[in-house]
Nucleic acid binder design. Structure first.
Lengths: 244, 244
DNA sequence: TACATTTAAATGTCTGACAATTTAAACGCA
DNA sequence: TGCGTTTAAATTGTCAGACATTTAAATGTA
């Protein structure tokens, strides 16, 4: 672990990178303890606050965890799916909200990814994931549900669909795509009629998966995509006519 | 922006979260300048080093950027695709390397996601992406290529395939999946025979996309997946027989 | 006006100190 | 001896204050 003395960048950034490299390359393995802050400061010939800034950078990426007290210190963290989900969702949400992604593009990406899951989901769906989907469908039919709650339930339904594929890597990759769409979806006002239509699509998808009919599920998803797209376009058009 | 005085967690973590919330919720908008470190320290009633640790956490997630000098400071960063790619890849790579993901599961996820792109790629592939794919295929045929270079070229080919879909959100989501597979792929020794087979599949995929034949591309991808899987299994089996 | 200089504001870094937390070892007692 | 309690040491968390460095605006000068 070395840093370049000629580099003009922040020392804390350089040190963070050096340690990150050591972790990624396997020089530091999971649960291994890093040297103490004082030792790191000596090693890199910087002050302790600088080392601490570097460690906080790594902690923000869940690369390390710290523990106080004797025999405490910084330890290489095993990145869990849960932590990875979280980062994935934060990043994806910000990317979408900050880059004026069109509803169409985001929608297309989301449904393309979900369609990738359906063949696997049709094979492997469990009573558990099917029950989750049914429960969310039921909730979506409740009158008096706010648009936000309806969208949240929509996300839960689609996550259950993704999880049905029984591939944690796939679930992880898609968590961001599905979840990050929620703010965009939240902008849509769901009339009773459109909710009914969406519930219809969801029911078709759940039925198809229950019957292991991948084709039918895929078709229903594609139609749902088309429907969502028209809903989104109507909203955008209305907004263009009457900007708040 | 407030922090809970009863919270026992690190102050720097709490402050980072408060600022992150302000960004995500839109209270702080892109390119807006945050208060200076001294002002933030006053506001949260903590010392400047603590504020700095919080800011470094946010910088590690590309949420802010800092500039020195008069009229410098911390600014809300517009998360670019490039930065998002980078984080996505780091996270996905670590997740795979630290969690003993089986080759089969990772492979399945990767090809499922790529298949999601093929219909769009068949419609929208440009001369540019096709040329990239052809160039990588050519490179893969070169004798004397190391296994690592072969894998790197493989990744480049698949990224071109993904980019062909012409949907940046999709490209972003898949960058992690494809790139993160590389370390796993690097463990495979590619014989001349297996390279030839892979180049064959790649050629079929490129040809199919050039002819806008989505079905054919999808079939070739599926066969490539099956072939990759057998290669991976052979390697794992050999390793199980003779652990180093 | 154009260019050099000064100045002020901000981040980057250092030093030294103390607080809080945690564990292991030392200690005392039955 | 064995067990509970206390103590000590190590480590991170936080603070205060100082100085260095960078940057751009303000100022002065030809």
């Amino acid at each position: 672990m070395k840093i370049d003395p000629d580099n003009k960048a922040d020392l804390s950034a350089q040190i963070a990178e050096a340690i990150r490299d050591a972790i990624v390359s396997g020089q530091l393995i999971v649960d291994e303890r890093l040297p103490s802050e004082a030792e790191l400061a000596d090693h890199f010939a910087v002050s302790r606050p600088t080392v601490r800034e570097a460690l906080k950078r790594l902690a923000a990426q869940s690369l390390i965890r710290t523990q106080r007290g004797a025999f405490g210190g910084a330890f290489v963290n095993r990145l869990s799916y849960t932590e990875a989900y979280g980062q994935q969702i934060t990043t994806a949400t910000l990317l979408l909200s900050m880059n004026a992604i069109s509803f169409d593009v985001a929608c297309e990406a989301r449904y393309a990814l979900e369609r990738a899951c359906t063949p696997l989901a049709a094979q492997r769906r469990t009573p558990d994931t099917l029950a989750t989907m049914r429960a969310e469908i039921h909730r979506q039919g409740q009158p008096g549900l706010t648009d936000e709650s309806f969208c949240a339930s929509d996300v839960a339904f689609h996550r259950a669909l993704v999880d049905s594929a029984g591939n944690p890597v796939l679930s992880y990759q898609l968590a961001g795509a599905v979840e990050a769409m929620q703010p965009l979806m939240n902008m849509i006002t769901f009339t009773a009629r459109s909710r009914e239509a969406i519930v219809g699509f969801h029911t078709r998808i759940a039925d198809a998966l229950a019957g292991s009919e991948a084709e039918a599920a895929q078709t229903a998803l594609t139609e749902l995509e088309a429907y969502t797209l028209t809903l989104g376009r109507d909203v955008m058009a209305a907004r263009a006519r009457a900007p708040r």
